[in-house]
Write a protein that binds this DNA or RNA. Sequence first.
DNA 1: CGTACTTTACTAACTAGTTAGTTTAACTAA
DNA 2: TTAGTTAAACTAACTAGTTAGTAAAGTACG
Lengths: 249, 249
Amino acid sequence: MSTSQSAHSPAERSAETRARILDAALSEFSAYGLAGARTDRIAAAAGVNKALLYYYFSSKEGLYLAAFELSAGKIRDRSMAALLKGVSPGERILRTALDHFDRILAQHEFQGLMQQEMIRLSKGESKAISILVDRVFGPLQKIYQATFEEGISSGELISVDWKQSQLAVIGANVFYFISAPMMRQLDVADPFDDGALALRRKSLVEFLGQAIFQDRQHGAELACRVLADTPMPAVERDRLPFWRKHERA
Amino acid sequence: MSTSQSAHSPAERSAETRARILDAALSEFSAYGLAGARTDRIAAAAGVNKALLYYYFSSKEGLYLAAFELSAGKIRDRSMAALLKGVSPGERILRTALDHFDRILAQHEFQGLMQQEMIRLSKGESKAISILVDRVFGPLQKIYQATFEEGISSGELISVDWKQSQLAVIGANVFYFISAPMMRQLDVADPFDDGALALRRKSLVEFLGQAIFQDRQHGAELACRVLADTPMPAVERDRLPFWRKHERA
DNA sequence: CGTACTTTACTAACTAGTTAGTTTAACTAA
DNA sequence: TTAGTTAAACTAACTAGTTAGTAAAGTACG
């Protein structure tokens, strides 16, 4: 078909096909979970035959794990970048919080995988999460803790339980997206309007700026700066799973 | 068998059987979702034949909706009670926040249903949520808003965006339980220890007490009082889906 | 010629839902 | 009191459909 015109060597073509399969698998698993995903749909979306999935990945679960790990790797790189910027600890914490929100917006597939994986984990069925904890969240958590404690000992941040504040930020971010489809029904306002998204980003950063800094003036200034030079990512609404309205209307 | 010795009339036995089925269905659907739930398992857990499910409820989805609505009704009654107590608006907001946490702990099945239903809603497949929005969350939201605005105009609360603060509280509460299985792997501390639960409840109420009251002293006192006369519910750990450790060890 | 695929045709396992029949309790007529 | 009748409650066994995964033979192409 038209999909294989660009690459020439067999190795290139192969890598391209593999990537296409992984991409299709990520969408499917994110929307339906491991059990609910259909291998036929993945094959169709990738533009290949079902048998080819088993040629590259030995099983449905193998494909799932490959897609999951690929996505997790991207998450780790992105979050690390925010946590390791050459600015003060407090500013790194602010940037990390905002980046977390933007990341869910930009890589919503991972959030879908996580939601499903949390359910599986609570039943003791998850194989992906231990890898994730060891290679992604564990390391990130350690750097976050170190950053926060550096901020406390340097006098920039107040001596607050970093886990409780992290929980509040991540919880509010994650819940914003989890509950968005219901908020759309509860409310008049659409949570994926640019206005609503901008308000949430602002509230998030300004709240943290007030809550964890010794010098609240300094916190407010940092919040302002972080917001100013982190533009809201453009929302590709038709890629969001929440955006079914326009598909039918 | 021994299950039918207590009730005598057929009507009583029938109602008892129906309730047993609904109870089993709630556990199953909560843990596995509508698609993942197995009718055979529900029948086995209820101690009846599978065909009886279809005798009482016409389909798998009918059974699902019946179980969902039963559970939702309990949630509404409980949350209404917290919002309508004869105390000041600010105290009602505090009690509602704490009650929300305790409610998830006590009625975790509903949270499981909601998690799965949010996923379905984002794909436009949910029939349960519109009922829920109309009959439960919509009315609760209105009372919450009115309570908050009453608190603002009486001068007890600061003039803050009630939706953003509600999002922070509910988000942190929900995320605490969603992420608990992963936190157990990330952390040394178990999030279902009495200590961790007590700390979270305390942080939650004290944070709100500081965040939304004009008179922070008053907020702190209220937080203290609310915590004091709302004892933490006893956690039936073996009913939690998170508690797989002791089942095997 | 070998690598990267496609095509077709399977199967084994599983699951929602059905059917046809049995048991139980309560009521009725002799 | 009791034998007969009925309706509701319940069951065992099956059907029909779906889905992951396989096998084998073949094609396109550098």
